[in-house]
Design a protein around this nucleic acid. Structure first.
Lengths: 210, 210
DNA sequence: TTGTAAATATGAGCGTTGTTCATATTCTAA
DNA sequence: TTAGAATATGAACAACGCTCATATTTACAA
């Protein structure tokens, strides 16, 4: 439940009367619950309408399409998350960087931990719609990851196998994500981002003397 | 085009005769082209069948559903990518870590650059199915990113605004991805991965004296 | 060469889905 | 009280992924 006015951009028509404002929030609450239970694809617009006890047509009075409903839900969380960031950032403005990183990452983790719907809705917007379960890496990614882990252990045997797997996973995921981002940018920005990725990974690996 | 036998796991029936083996590869080539042109969701099974000049039924002789077709395409690329990794890894086995990181990241970037279908298919398997365009960050992410960039510039003004934005982007994307991964793991692994994320980000930021 | 059973090919049609829109109802304000 | 604007409604539509009864082709023993 939220009393916030919804963004006009994602809505077909801004509800002008109180009853429809309530209706819209009710639809969102029902949709969230269904997305958590069934996932985005499995949740039909009819199912949302039925459980919310409104006709399908009413959904489309406010939301241009099904996707706009997930977007609206995601926005409710993004805004909360942002407010958390702003407040914590102000508190940490002068602490040393180790502490800043530590507190910030913990805060984001706890936010996702405490808001049940956040991960359910967001991961259906990022994972489940990824069609193949994104949490499962493909078999070749696994092979590369193990190759990397063995490589690290030979370089610095003190680290141990399980730690090396963890490091390899971290390197692999971070580098992969940044490469994907790079491809969405124009050539100059892309090159800069790739150089930055190298800096990130190298600085990290050097802390392990590999 | 590939002569490789396709994985049985993703297929409904292993083609036993030469003509159907050819058929399957032809279907995949046509599907790839359509995914590049129209995207995954917009490419209908009928469209694939029509352009491949086979009836829809033939698609379902070999692939259990539409998703299996993207998976099969992705597998063709994953395998190529893995082979590239193995070869380069062998070459770099004894170089110092800076060089290893540099060459590896360049290699992955070039692979994606040179294989047109790779990004098209993979990003439709990662982005487009993400329903909302994942390459576009939401407005609150942008705000947090700018807050972080300003923070970095105040800490070390020599870096300059645009460099600080780049650093903030890198931190934000890497940390975010690793947090999502962490939530797919059980509690002990999750905590280890979160600790590792902190190490990664801190080591990186320390190279900039922030 | 022929006959026959297994393998493969075919596309009309089924069940569902997201979405629309003509019509009915409710609200606002003069 | 009432005209007109805003809102509500759900049957109907187009398009989708997918199936399955039927037709065709292949493999191989007789």
């Amino acid at each position: 439940m939220t009393d916030d006015r919804l963004k006009t951009s994602t809505m077909r028509r801004q509800p002008k009367q109180a009853r429809s404002q309530e209706r819209v929030n009710h639809i969102l609450d029902v949709a969230e619950q269904l997305f958590i239970e069934l996932g985005y694809e499995q949740t039909t617009t009819r199912a949302i309408a039925t459980r919310a006890e409104v006709p399908v047509g009413s959904l489309y009075q406010f939301f241009p399409d099904k996707e706009a409903i997930v977007r609206a839900l995601a926005d409710r969380y993004f805004e909360q998350e942002y407010r958390m960031f702003v407040q914590l950032h102000a508190e940490l403005i002068d602490v040393k960087i180790d502490t800043y990183v530590d507190r910030m990452i913990d805060a984001f983790q706890h936010f996702a931990d405490e808001h049940l719907g956040y991960r359910a809705v967001l991961s259906q917007l990022i994972d489940l719609m990824t069609a193949t379960d994104a949490s499962q890496m493909n078999e070749y990614d696994q092979l590369m990851l193990l190759g990397l882990a063995e490589f690290l252990e030979r370089r610095n045997p003190e680290l141990g196998a399980s730690r090396c797997e963890l490091i390899a996973t971290t390197v692999f995921k971070a580098a992969n994500e940044l490469l994907w981002l790079a491809f969405t940018r124009d050539i100059p920005h892309r090159q800069a981002l790739i150089a930055e990725t190298k800096t990130l990974i190298t600085a990290y690996l050097k802390t392990y003397n590999v």
